[in-house]
Every structure is written in structure tokens, then in C-alpha cells.
Design a protein around this nucleic acid. Structure first.
Length: 476
RNA sequence: GCCGAGGUAGCUCAGUCUGGUUAGAGCGCCUGACUGUGGAUCAGGAGGUCGGCGGUUCGAGCCCGCCUCUCGGUACCA
């Protein structure tokens, strides 16, 4: 009869329970460690920005449809940020006292009102790394190296960072005689090469086609010689970055402005080679376009070789025009953003993270009312010795119930202090994992109870030290 | 946005074609057997506006219409 509210979330939003959250915090801490090792400094900006700040940029124009609007009592035009790069551009324009180059990292939620998909949510976390105020290619090199080091530190298994540049794509436009107003559309189609193959790319560049669900995909109406030149461009592939450079020089010989663009990607490749980032980690791949209206120089993205279906987990590029929107002054910038949620989903899919569901290392059982203050004191004794400990606070006093709780929370150790132990000046420690293994072989309940797997009595004296040794031994 | 398939217990689903008393199963959850030992087993229990609104009918989880959400594909993706 009561009008209960149905507990629910709007589409594309989700809760993160302890198991997810612990894995995620490990990821964030690991990423932060790499970024700080590179000497980048943290900033934070509000989730809410003025709508014109968000939509003013080239990125914002594309983004308008997917910005979440926000209302305030003053009825101002506000929205939730959809990335961390636009707010960074605002910060650079607003806080003129910041030293340049300004090298910052930021980890925060962003929101996009898109259709949700696998590993793709309406609220998600980005972890960005950017250098603002330098045209140096070393800055771009650092970002790429940082991507490699981050993915290595996260133990993602195989990965490949691929890069190209907007300048190379511009040279393609000249080479294939494509008009600048078609550039964005052409880049968007090229970006699909990996996914759909050249035949479909060709159709979409020319006449369009109907996909198998009956949806009409419009063509761009390019001519045969244009498509042929694009085909030759895309044919420039090689395992070694230097081979790609060589082939590209040949293809673009005589194309106006191409020489300098090829030199630029070659210099980045050279820096990377000398730092030990070989062709196995970083590839020069001309098919990546990233469909990004605001990138002006190198663009980069990373995939996991063991989970390519999760798409790009880390991407970025140089955007020399973005701050101009606020300052009227050209401020060069380059950076990358890691999709924490998508990468977490991929790592969970690969079984490389997870399992841990609590921060507690020891659950202290609360069995005998007359010993309650003693076990409470014991719990704090462990905490003060730096061991994460939890006292059972549920209402049932029986051991079975409390061990069941221990099992379900995933805590590695249980500590029993009842009247038996008290009388003898000991406590009982129980390694829960040992029981999990044992339970598979035991059939009769009596045997199970009597086996008391992983259990031992230890002296009450020096307990913290004993527990620390035991935790190290069982690897928790 | 477009095409298709779905929505029944916390989860996975049966029942819908052929409308008929209190709507089912497995898993999970709670309680107990087992009063100081997790698992297994057995017994019992809680849990449902059958996605929503309207229509047809004596009667709708089932038939009809609209809406909504989810899933798959596709498009988009800063």
C-alpha cells in the first residue's frame, strides 16, 4: 500500500560495487604513478560548465547533441562537461599566471548523452595527460611514451599504440584532390578501415550502400582516381615505422607541403626508437584518423591486442587551436586520455583484475558477549599496528554465521577469540582460502567441521607481528 | 537515428500459438537440522502491480493498438 519508490538508474548509468571499485582504484593509482613519474601535476575543475564554454569549440559543435543540460536557480545555460580537454583550455585562458609549458593530469567523470554500449556509459571516467604551451615534438613523444608506460604498468598484456598526424592526412587531401570541406567526412570513413575493410570504405567514399539491416549508408561521391589514390595511401603499411616513412616519401613526392609532415612523424619515431619504444609497441599507422575535428598535429590511439573488440582505450593528439577560442591567441597543446571504464571492462573481460572485494585483511569474530570489549580492543590493536581489521557487527553470534560472512566478503583471515582461547592466552587464526580449496574434496559434514582447514592457534602476545607474517605467507 | 528480436521472482528462463479457479522452475537469498566452524546435503520460508496505458471479452501474463525500456546489428562517437 505504501507508495514505494522503485530503486533504479537512468540508462547508461551504473553503480560500482566494491569489487569493481577496488580494481578501478588500483588502476587510477597506477596511472597516477606513471603520470607523476613524468612530472605532470594534478588539477581539478567543476563538473558543470557554462554551455557556451562547452559548445564553443570545434569539438563542442559536434558534441552539442550529447551534452547533459544542467539547471541552476539563476537559470543560466549550463551543462555537464563531456571531456577534460575543453575545461583545460578554459583553465589556461582564465588562469594566466600558470607557467607554460603547463603539464597537468586530471582524473574525473565526464558525461555524454549517447546511446550506451558495451564498455560505454553515459557517465564515465577519463584520465588525461596534457602539455600546454609547447610546439616541441618531444611533448608529443612524451605523451606516446607515457601511453606505453601506463599500459605496461597496468599489466594489460599486449597493446599497440598507433599514431599518424593530421598533417599527413592533409597531404592526402592534396594528393587525392579532395576539397577541404569534405575532409571530416573522408577521415571519418577512413577511420573505419580496420572494422569494415577496404571494399566497404570504397563504397562509402563513392556511391554508398545498404547494410544488411537495411540501413542506407550515404556515399561521399568521390571519383575513381580519388579513391585510387586513397587506396594507394592506405596501402602504405609496414611493421617498421621507418619503412612506412620511406614508402610515404615515395608516394607523396612532389605533393606540396607533404615533405615537412613526413619529417615530423619521422622525428617522433626517431625519438621513440632512441628511448627504446620499438615497432612492437608503437606503430606508424596512416589509417587512424580519429574523426576529430580539433586535432591539428600528431594523433594517437591504443588498442589491446588481446581485446580489440573494446576499441580504443587510450587516445589523443595535438590540438593547437583549442585555447584560441578563449584567448584569441594560439596556444599549442598535446595530450591523451585514457578511458578508465572501458579499459576496466576490458581487463575484467580478460580476467586480469578483480577478485578482491574488501579492504579488510582480518575479520575478528564476536562470539561471547562477555568478551565483546576484549575483541573490540583487539580489533583496534591490529588497526593501530597497520593491519586492516573488521569486527563482526551482525546480530548472529554463532560461528557458522560469522564465518559465512567472512567467506562472502572475501576477507583472507578470520580471528576467533572465545572463552577457550581466552583461558589459554591464545587466539585462533583461520586462513579462509585454505578452506575454499579443502571444501572441494570433503563430502561429509562431520569431516568438514573437524578438518578445520587453514586453522591454527597462536599466542595472544605479539599477535600483530604473527598476522603480518601470515598475510605475507598467503599472499594477501 | 534506422532495421530486427525481446520485457514474467534478485539472476536465467518456461507458460503466450490454442484466453479460464490462488502464475511456475532452476540458481541465489533467509531460517533450521548442525547450541564453537565457511562447502555439500535435506527441510521450511520470503520474494511478482507478468514493462506501462488503453481496447476486445463474462474473463487477458496470453488477443489488438499506442508508448516505454532492454538486447543484437548499423549509424554516430570530442
Amino acid at each position: 500500500m505504501t507508495d514505494r519508490v522503485k530503486p533504479r538508474l537512468s540508462r547508461g548509468l551504473r553503480d560500482l560495487l566494491p569489487e569493481d571499485m577496488l580494481a578501478r582504484q588500483w588502476m587510477v593509482d597506477t596511472i597516477r604513478g606513471v603520470y607523476e613519474n613524468y612530472g605532470f601535476s594534478p588539477i581539478s575543475t567543476p563538473a558543470i560548465e557554462y554551455l557556451d564554454v562547452l559548445t564553443g569549440s570545434a569539438a563542442g559543435t559536434e558534441a552539442q547533441g550529447s551534452i547533459f543540460g544542467v539547471s541552476n536557480p539563476e537559470e543560466e545555460q549550463l551543462g555537464l562537461r563531456f571531456d577534460l580537454t575543453v575545461p583545460l583550455a578554459r583553465v589556461m585562458a582564465q588562469h594566466r599566471q600558470l607557467p607554460r609549458p603547463f603539464r597537468r593530469y586530471q582524473v574525473a567523470s565526464v558525461w555524454r548523452a549517447d546511446k550506451p554500449d558495451k564498455g560505454r556509459f553515459r557517465e564515465f571516467t577519463q584520465f588525461d595527460l596534457d602539455s600546454v604551451g609547447t610546439v616541441s615534438e618531444i611533448a608529443d613523444t612524451e605523451i606516446i611514451a607515457g601511453m606505453c608506460d601506463t599500459l605496461t604498468a597496468l599489466k594489460v598484456g599486449g597493446f599497440r599504440v598507433r599514431y599518424s598526424s593530421r598533417g599527413i592526412l592533409n597531404a592526402l587531401l592534396t594528393f587525392a584532390e579532395i576539397s577541404p570541406d569534405q575532409a571530416t567526412d573522408v577521415f571519418r570513413v577512413l577511420d573505419k578501415l580496420d572494422k569494415v575493410g577496404f571494399e566497404k570504405v570504397k563504397l562509402e567514399l563513392t556511391s554508398g550502400y545498404q547494410d544488411r539491416s537495411g540501413d542506407v549508408i550515404r556515399g561521399l561521391g568521390l571519383g575513381e582516381s580519388q579513391v585510387d589514390r586513397i587506396h594507394r595511401f592506405l596501402g602504405v603499411r609496414a611493421e617498421a615505422r621507418q619503412d612506412v616513412v620511406t614508402q610515404l616519401e615515395e608516394l607523396f613526392s612532389g605533393v606540396e607541403g607533404a615533405e615537412e609532415e613526413v619529417r615530423a612523424v619521422e622525428r617522433i619515431s626517431g625519438h621513440l626508437y632512441s628511448l627504446g619504444y620499438g615497432d612492437d609497441q608503437v606503430a606508424l599507422d596512416l589509417s587512424i584518423a580519429r574523426g576529430l575535428a580539433y586535432y591539428t598535429g600528431p594523433v594517437f590511439e591504443a588498442h589491446l591486442t588481446e581485446a580489440p573488440q573494446f576499441g580504443s582505450v587510450f587516445g589523443g593528439g595535438r590540438y593547437d587551436g583549442l585555447v584560441m577560442r578563449f584567448l584569441g591567441e594560439k596556444v599549442p597543446a598535446t595530450g591523451a586520455s585514457i578511458g578508465v571504464d572501458r579499459l576496466l571492462a576490458a581487463l575484467q573481460h580478460l580476467g586480469r583484475v578483480g577478485g578482491k572485494r574488501t579492504t579488510s585483511e582480518v575479520l575478528v569474530l564476536n562470539m561471547d558477549p562477555s568478551l565483546e570489549s576484549e575483541v573490540l580492543g583487539l580489533t583496534f590493536e591490529l588497526r593501530r599496528a597497520g593491519i586492516s581489521a573488521e569486527l563482526y557487527l551482525g546480530k548472529g553470534r554463532n560461528v557458522g554465521k560469522q564465518l559465512k560472512y567472512a567467506d562472502r566478503t572475501g576477507v583472507p583471515l578470520a580471528l576467533l577469540l572465545g572463552s577457550d582461547e581466552k583461558a589459554r592466552g591464545v587466539v585462533t587464526l583461520k586462513d579462509l582460502e585454505a578452506g575454499r580449496e579443502k571444501s572441494a574434496e570433503v563430502e561429509k559434514r562431520e569431516d568438514w567441521i573437524q578438518a578445520r582447514p587453514g586453522q591454527r592457534e597462536v599466542p595472544r602476545e605479539g599477535l600483530a607481528g604473527t598476522i603480518r607474517e601470515l598475510l605475507a605467507e598467503i599472499g594477501s
